[in-house]
Structure formats: C-alpha cells, structure tokens
Simulated scan of single mutants.
Amino acid sequence: MFMGEYKHNIDTKGRIIVPSKFRDGLGETFVITRGLDQCLFAYPIDEWHLLEEKLKKLPLTKKDARAFTRFFFSGAVECEVDKQGRINIPASLRKYAVLDKECAVIGVSNRVEIWSDQAWTGYVEESEESFSEIAENMLDIDF
C-alpha cells in the first residue's frame, strides 16, 4: 500500500526522484499514465494488469468507455527507476500534469500520483473545506 506525501523537483530533462518508500512497491519497472484531476498515476505492473482487465470489460459500444480507455492507455508508458532513484517522465505527460519544477508525489493505496506542487496545494486547500461533506456522501465507510 502506498501512503504519504513527498516533495521533489523535476529537472529540465524530465527526471524526478521516486521516494524510496515507494520504490519497492512500484518495482524496477512500472506504468505511468494520465490520471484524473490533471495528475499522473503510477501503477506497479501487477496492479496495472488488474486495471487493464477491468477496463477490457467495459462495453465497446459505450462512447464514454471508449473515450476513457483511449485517454488512459494512450498516455501509458513503462518507466524504469535509474541508479539514482529517478524516472524520466515523457514530455507529453509532463505537459498534461503541468510538471515544470516543484512536484508532489503522493501515495494513494494501490497507486502513486504525481502532481505539480501548485495543483496539489490547491486541491488540498479546496478539499479540506469540504472533507466532512465528502465523507458524509461516501457509502459504507466507518472510521
């Protein structure tokens, strides 16, 4: 399980350090793709395969299903962690998530998310105000 929040800078070549606490869980090779809310999602290979199987079951006749799978899979790339613990994020994914300098790398259960620090800070501030309301609207969650 991935959890926690870490701040790292992305360099001019598009490389960012993967927090050491996440490296073991992600493995030497993992998949990174466009996520929701203008961030990137990173999945260990086994989690990626589980997600792939679920998405294959979506009906091809549904326009939203086709659009989502196109969006999700067309942005996906396999990444390898280098000896310094960094990955190289392709330019298209950096552009999508507006990653230019300061980034937030967060653990979210079965995946890691990479955000521009500015977008993450804005998301947290907005979400903090409505966290109780969000929790009330969720079904079957006991804290």
Rank of each mutant, 00 (worst) to 15 (best):
D117T: 14
K21Q: 10
V105I: 15
F22T: 03
I114Q: 01
F131H: 06
T12W: 01
D142V: 00
W120I: 06
L40A: 10
Y96Q: 13
F143S: 00
D24N: 11
R70K: 11
Y123A: 13
L40V: 13
S132H: 06
D142H: 00
K21M: 13
D24H: 13
E78F: 06
K13D: 07
L26I: 03
K13C: 12
G27C: 11
D142F: 00
V98N: 15
P90K: 10
K101I: 09
Y96K: 09
Q84A: 15
A104K: 09
L51W: 10
E128P: 02
V77H: 05
K57Q: 06
R70G: 03
L139D: 02
A104V: 06
Q84L: 09
K63F: 08
N9Y: 13
E129K: 15
G4Y: 09
E133L: 11
H8L: 06
F71W: 07
I10K: 05
A119G: 07
H8V: 04
G85Y: 01
T29D: 15
K54W: 10
L99Q: 03
M138F: 07
F41E: 01
A65R: 04
L40K: 09
H49Q: 14
F68M: 02
A76L: 02
M138A: 07
E128K: 10
N88S: 15
P19I: 06
N110L: 09
I32T: 04
K57Y: 03
A76S: 10
I17V: 12
P44L: 04
A135T: 02
F72I: 03
F143Y: 02
A119K: 07
K57L: 05
E133C: 07
D117G: 14
E129H: 12
T29A: 08
P44T: 07
L58R: 15
A65P: 01
P19A: 07
G85T: 03
Q118K: 11
S20D: 11
G27Y: 14
R66Y: 05
W115T: 05
D11Y: 12
S132M: 13
I114G: 00
Y43V: 14
L139S: 05
G27D: 10
E53H: 06
R111H: 14
D140H: 04
F143E: 00
G14T: 10
T61Y: 09
H8M: 11
H49S: 14
N110F: 03
A65M: 03
E129S: 14
I16V: 14
I89H: 01
F30N: 04
L51F: 08
S127T: 15
E129T: 13
S20H: 11
D117Y: 15
D64Q: 03
S92K: 12
I87A: 08
C103Q: 15
G85F: 01
K101W: 05
D117I: 09
V112N: 09
F72P: 02
V81T: 12
E113D: 06
G75S: 06
I32C: 05
L139E: 03
